[in-house]
Design a binder for these strands. Structure first.
Lengths: 209, 209
DNA sequence: CTATCGTGTTGATATAAATCAGTAATTGTG
DNA sequence: CACAATTACTGATTTATATCAACACGATAG
């Protein structure tokens, strides 16, 4: 294997021997952009660990509307609920960029987890992080309206906001590109952002959410 | 203490000695209906375990609109993210009925967790359950429209649907009572539900979500 | 027994955001 | 460079749902 598990956050502080064991039932995969990692409804067998790239997790509703649940980034664990609960994946995962993932045989990993407190601790930390993330999605999407969500997004992504395409931001925020464009016009008109000067008035933005 | 921890799901398979230790920093509280368990923004110090009753967790948005994030029921753990992450509670918890809770000193519990694999496992299970729940909220609220949400609710609560007040259902589903009333009218008109006969055509309902 | 309160219903109106449609600007490519 | 493709902008329309308002019904209290 090209990737060493010991360099991965999830396996920090886990002893060499345990890591070697895990490496035996872990495989490395590259998935190129736009390809599917797993489908909604698939039976889980592997836990996925995203090493590099971005994976988009989404559901397709009855009326064929795609709703993005989450974008995964480096070092995130994907599919642990389905695996722990033995239920089919509740959503589809697609490579949003060229991606490197580790596929870990879940049944085998499970045995190792309970004999290794450090690994159990790391998994726990990862779960907590995920809960925090989900709670954040819920409060962002249910409590804030579009303008507030945009304000919050710009505030939190001031560093790469001007480098991200509006259609991507719109998708992440779950608003239409037209609506985003109108909201951005509002912030431009109020001198809160300035695209030419790459200026963001964060103090002013914070008022909007 | 009136309640014995060993009878609580979270402490199943945990040895007597550990339980005794935990009981030393656990206190029992009754909170009557409509009283606050903790406020959004409070610094967490205790982990709450809901023994009996229903707790409503909600956020108040800038425009004073109350958004219900979740109703907690028996045996659910409340506030573990805030505690693990050392961040203020992100929402307010209010007793939705008369309630019995255990307050567990988190810092002390933390020490015990890592020396006790069974407890760590139980906590992990509880976290997974919570993730599943949150993912369900997200897919229900972001993917489904009002009629679909109502259909899903009736389908999943066929046993107590006719005994629950519409204003409560409306709050749980995050729709206005008027909208719920109109949707129910639709299902009545289509002979999918019949209030008098307490009849629910679950097969027909499933088509709507 | 009537008055009041909580709940549910129904119609009219308001509102946020999506969708549709056309055009402009920017980026990529032969 | 010139043309195509993608992305962004803007106005008009539609849609889902909330809000407002009025009223009906049943249960409980005085």
């Amino acid at each position: 294997m090209r990737i060493h598990l010991k360099n991965i956050v999830l396996f920090q502080n886990v002893d060499e021997e345990t890591i070697k064991k895990i490496e035996h039932f872990t495989t490395e995969h590259k998935v190129s952009k736009e390809n599917i990692v797993f489908y909604e409804g698939d039976e889980p067998k592997y836990l996925f660990l995203l090493v590099k790239g971005v994976i988009k997790l989404y559901k397709t509703s009855s009326n064929h509307k795609e709703v993005v649940l989450k974008y995964f980034h480096d070092n995130e664990l994907i599919g642990e609920v389905a695996n722990f609960e033995g239920m089919p994946y509740p959503a589809t995962a697609k490579a949003y960029s060229d991606v490197e993932v580790l596929k870990i045989d879940f049944e085998k990993l499970k045995e190792v987890i309970f004999s290794n407190p450090n690994l159990a601790f790391n998994i726990q930390t990862s779960l907590i992080k995920k809960i925090k993330n989900l709670e954040n999605i819920i409060s962002t999407n249910l409590v804030l309206d579009s303008k507030e969500r945009v304000a919050k997004y710009i505030y939190n992504h001031a560093d790469d906001f001007f480098e991200t395409k509006n259609i991507e931001i719109a998708e992440i925020l779950g608003v239409s590109p037209e609506t985003l464009s109108r909201i951005l016009k509002f912030f431009k008109d109020h001198d809160i952002i300035n695209v030419k000067k790459k200026f963001i008035d964060r103090d002013a933005l914070i008022q909007y959410f």
